[in-house]
Amino acid sequence: MMPVLSLFCVLIVAVSVLGGIFPLARLLDHTRLQVYLSFAAGSMLGAAFFHMLPEAVEGGSPSTIRWTGVGLLGLFFLERFFSFHHHEPQVPSPEGGHDHGHASHGRHPSRNTPDALSWWTAAFGLAVHSLVGGVALASAVAADHAARGAIGATGWGVFLATLLHKPADSLTIVTLMLRSGAPRRLAHAVNLGFAAMIPLGVLLFVLGLGGLSADAASRGRSIALAFSAGTFLCIALSDLLPELQFHSHDRWKLSVALIAGFALMAGTASIELF
Rank of each mutant, 00 (worst) to 15 (best):
E95I: 11
V10H: 12
H165Q: 10
L11G: 05
P54E: 09
R80Q: 13
A182Y: 07
T172A: 15
L37C: 13
G133L: 01
L192F: 14
L117M: 14
F50V: 07
G133Q: 01
P199Q: 09
H105W: 11
R221A: 05
L200I: 02
A138L: 04
H105F: 10
S83W: 09
S110F: 14
P94E: 15
S16D: 08
H30C: 00
S6G: 06
T68V: 05
A257I: 00
F232M: 12
G152W: 03
A229G: 09
I12H: 04
A116I: 00
A56V: 03
T113P: 02
S248K: 12
S218Q: 14
S170K: 03
L212D: 10
I198M: 08
L53G: 03
H86R: 12
G60D: 06
G42K: 06
D239N: 13
D115N: 01
M2I: 08
G74W: 07
A47K: 03
A263P: 00
A150M: 07
D115I: 00
A127I: 01
V256S: 12
L45N: 08
L37K: 05
A150C: 02
V57E: 15
S43A: 15
S213H: 08
H102V: 00
T64G: 05
P62Y: 15
L45Y: 10
L78D: 07
L18S: 10
I12E: 02
L241S: 14
G59Q: 12
A195Y: 02
A56E: 07
W67F: 15
A161L: 03
L53W: 07
V141Y: 01
S213I: 04
F76C: 03
G69L: 06
Q245W: 12
M177H: 11
L203Q: 09
T31P: 06
I198Y: 00
A257Y: 07
H249R: 14
L186H: 13
A229W: 01
K166E: 06
H100A: 12
H165D: 07
V135N: 01
F82N: 05
V135T: 05
A214G: 04
N112S: 11
G125P: 03
A138P: 01
L73P: 00
S270P: 00
G149Y: 13
D215C: 02
R107L: 11
L72W: 10
V132A: 11
R111S: 09
V132S: 05
S38N: 14
H87A: 12
S110L: 12
L5A: 02
A150Y: 05
L164A: 11
F22I: 06
G155V: 03
P92R: 15
H108N: 14
Y36K: 08
L254D: 05
A224S: 14
L273D: 11
V202H: 03
A226F: 08
G134E: 05
G60V: 02
A236V: 02
H108K: 13
F262T: 09
S110T: 00
G20E: 04
G71L: 04
R32V: 00
L209I: 14
S16V: 01
E95Y: 13
G267R: 10
R219L: 12
A266T: 05
G74F: 07
L244D: 09
G149V: 06
P3R: 12
H98F: 15
A48W: 02
P94I: 09
L126C: 06
S118C: 08
P94D: 15
V132W: 03
A168T: 06
M44Y: 05
G155W: 02
L240Q: 08
Q245N: 08
H102T: 00
S248Q: 14
T64W: 08
N112H: 15
G42H: 04
P3V: 03
